[in-house]
Design a protein around this nucleic acid. Structure first.
Lengths: 288, 288
DNA sequence: CAGGATCTCTGACTAAAGTCAGAGAATGGA
DNA sequence: TCCATTCTCTGACTTTAGTCAGAGATCCTG
């Protein structure tokens, strides 16, 4: 804990100096950040507003200012003329690459005085800190199963099963977990969020005899190793206890080894098949 | 390098949210930071100005504001009435501890969602990043040997030799490196700085036959393992080359094992005694 | 095609952050 | 004791950051 605070202090100090002196290039910080956030690919006003968490009046004014410096152009989006798309002009792109260079320069100034061994150690330690801070900020929430994020997760999940199962995967042949069955109070669909990006999902399907079924457990490939699935499972169990369910059940395919070891380590024990799921080879149960 | 930039981005984002929302307590950030920087031990206006890098007019106004909220008292320092000492009032101390609690709370919010193993790994990785960033920001500069910092280093150095040598240490019996001999152009005194704190020292004494002597190599105990001595030695060698010296020589005591291994790994080879230094057991030389 | 919803923009603000040129008191050395 | 220097403070500013209430355009749905 002391370590966390000391770390924060140091890093804020070092990088803060950076932000203000290096990255402004004689421009108010707000404008500099905005320019950087627009980036070479452009963005629309709406995204910028949410990403930088700016008041719409203020953002508009910043855009006007960058526009009058001929750094950006703003024009309506073709498919929805209420929205406006912001792109960098040639001059704007030049400024952007200048920022990039500066921030590379700063990164270099951290690495350059170190020996090669120290550099490697620093890089490794930074990656570790980054992963774990990301892991700490994962939030699991119940979401409607028909939301964009939920559909995205499920599509990814099915696609992955199709490649991993020896037999391929056809959702229609599998035991159901329909949107209705995952909508409260029949069931619950959980999404693990890393900021605004879904990093995994899972579902709890309640069944009349106070037995819950765990379904749709999936972790996004780029979020593996952070304990996402464990966090989702934990959320499901907490919900199940709130609902006074007595037991949780689930089935899984033999190719999903990491899932099996998660279930075992979370206290599930293997039981005889309790349903006829054609894709399952292992059935698990946990008493709550 | 990519890693460094991603790391900076992430940490700025996470801790930035912190600073603004957690640490303000309904107060402008400037005032909050100032209060925090004054701390329970108090500080003088001058130190605050340099530490927070504030314009003196602005700082004065911030102090007036905290004063009118009865959070601080400002009074002249006894020994120099131009300077003014700032201390927290009872109410100010209460506010300060409230800030402390909040920032503990934030640290907890990073650790709390993690498993114990993950927490340990995070703490270790943070400590590593901290050490290496500190190591990267060490700056070695030539300083007058009669400056406060130089005298402080030398005093520490002598005190340490006195405890480490089996025979104790009396500077008067040892070969000289007087202030005059370490003042340009006769010689140079180097201090390694971590921010404004001296972390070690070393000296180059030039001698008429274009041979340099390395003297007074010392690293502060709390800065060991960061490569401080290596950086100082490197600075000395660079200077020696600038001066067109042909060789560097040094002698050392058998109890200073870490020093010997540094010299060997830096390309010094052991030679026969070239002087009668009573405290030396090993003599080294490097051709430049 | 009417009416509500969505999106961005403008005008009119306020608050915070920061600069600059002195004024005035205290100090240190010639 | 005088004079240059050091230190903090004040008055008079500017710039940056941010808010709020609409206006006006566009879109979606019944």
């Amino acid at each position: 804990m002391q370590q966390v605070r000391r770390f924060n202090r140091l890093v804020i100090q070092r990088t803060g100096a950076l932000e203000t002196s290096y990255l402004r290039r004689g421009r108010p910080l707000g404008e500099a950040r905005l320019l950087f956030e627009i980036g070479p690919d452009g963005a629309d006003v709406r995204t910028l507003r949410t990403r930088l968490d700016l008041n719409s009046g203020y953002l508009s004014r910043l855009l006007r200012s960058l526009e009058s410096q001929h750094l950006i152009t703003v024009r309506p989006e073709p498919d929805d003329a209420r929205r406006r798309a912001v792109t960098l002009t040639r001059k704007g792109r030049a400024e952007y690459t200048a920022y990039e260079k500066l921030s590379d320069g700063l990164a270099t100034s951290w690495l350059e005085p170190l020996t090669p061994t120290q550099r490697d150690r620093l890089t490794i330690a930074m990656a570790e800190v980054e992963r774990l801070i990301t892991a700490a900020t994962i939030a699991v929430r119940i979401e409607p199963p028909d939301s964009d994020a939920a559909r995205h997760c499920l599509a990814q999940y099915f696609a992955e099963l199709a490649t991993r199962f020896e037999t391929g995967f056809d959702p229609a042949r599998s035991n159901s977990a329909t949107e209705a069955e995952m909508t409260p109070p029949a069931g619950y669909f959980f999404i693990a969020w890393i900021d605004t990006r879904p990093a995994g999902c899972g579902a709890l399907k309640c069944n009349p005899r106070r037995i819950g079924e765990v379904k749709r457990m999936w972790t996004a490939p780029d979020a593996r190793g952070l304990g996402v699935a464990r966090r989702i499972l934990h959320a499901i169990e907490t919900k199940a206890r709130d609902l006074r369910l007595k037991r949780l059940r689930l089935e899984t395919n033999r190719t999903l080894l990491e899932a099996q070891s998660l279930y075992r380590s979370a206290g599930y024990r293997e039981v005889a098949a309790f349903n006829a799921e054609p894709y399952a080879h292992h059935w698990f149960e946990k008493r709550l």
